[in-house]
């Protein structure tokens, strides 16, 4: 988590240094980004009570296909895109009434979202953006365990949503650098327990991403 924060803080401070230039793209684009993902400590609930799963930060990547709306567009300056993302979250610690124990296994999340992004564009080389998206996520628990004892596994598809903010840096007329933050959440997925039954977990993650977007 600390590592993720440092990355995001660094990226946030980067665009304070940005200068101004010009030119913008209108039309279709493709993009790809990579970054760090941190799934926040999750409250998990079953019929016996609440317990906590804590995760280590790990990687995420995503690919986008979208349309860039330039200046003068009647619906405003921004983008609409279809985004596929993959997030990996290794289990770090599991806490019960008796205490916390080392965890193993991971939660992987594949999502397909439609994002709408508004851009505060001017004549400068960079422009801040703010957006949000909604769609579906397939959340898969693989080999979750606590102190070597199986905890749960399985996968489920749930509604997912995302808020995003960042900055577009115009590199050329057709190529842009995207430096951003993503707040990704999903409706409480149900995960099968190793000893029968299931638990539902809260799901919310922070991500810092860097990507390239090419217009054509």
């Amino acid at each position: 988590m600390k590592q993720t924060r440092e990355i995001i803080i660094m990226l946030s401070l980067m665009f304070l240094l940005c200068g101004t230039a010009a030119a913008e793209h209108t039309g279709p684009y493709i993009g790809a980004s990579i970054g760090a993902n941190a799934l926040v400590k999750a409250k998990c609930t079953d019929d016996q009570g609440d317990f906590r799963l804590a995760f280590d930060p790990d990687m995420q990547w995503s690919a986008q296909l979208g349309w860039d709306y330039g200046q003068g567009n009647p619906i405003g300056v921004g983008r609409i895109e279809l985004e596929y993302s993959f997030r990996n979250s290794p289990l770090d610690k599991v806490s019960f009434v008796e205490g916390g124990y080392a965890g193993a296994g991971k939660i992987t999340t594949e999502s397909l979202l439609i994002n709408c992004i508004g851009i505060a564009r001017d004549a400068g080389i960079w422009a801040p953006y703010l957006g949000g998206g909604a769609g579906a996520a397939r959340i898969k628990a693989s080999g979750l365990s606590s102190a070597g004892n199986p905890l749960g596994s399985g996968s489920t598809v749930v509604f997912a949503y995302q808020g995003e903010a960042g900055v577009d840096v115009r590199l050329t007329d057709w190529l842009s650098l995207d430096v951003g933050y993503r707040l990704f959440g999903a409706l409480r997925p149900h995960i099968d327990e190793a000893n029968g039954g299931s638990f539902e977990m809260e799901y919310l993650s922070h991500s810092a991403v860097v990507g390239l977007r090419a217009g054509f």
Partner: peptide
């Protein structure tokens, strides 16, 4: 940064 409440479930 997530839930920091006290667990109520036994292990």
């Amino acid at each position: 940064c997530g839930w920091d409440g006290a667990p109520t479930r036994i292990n």
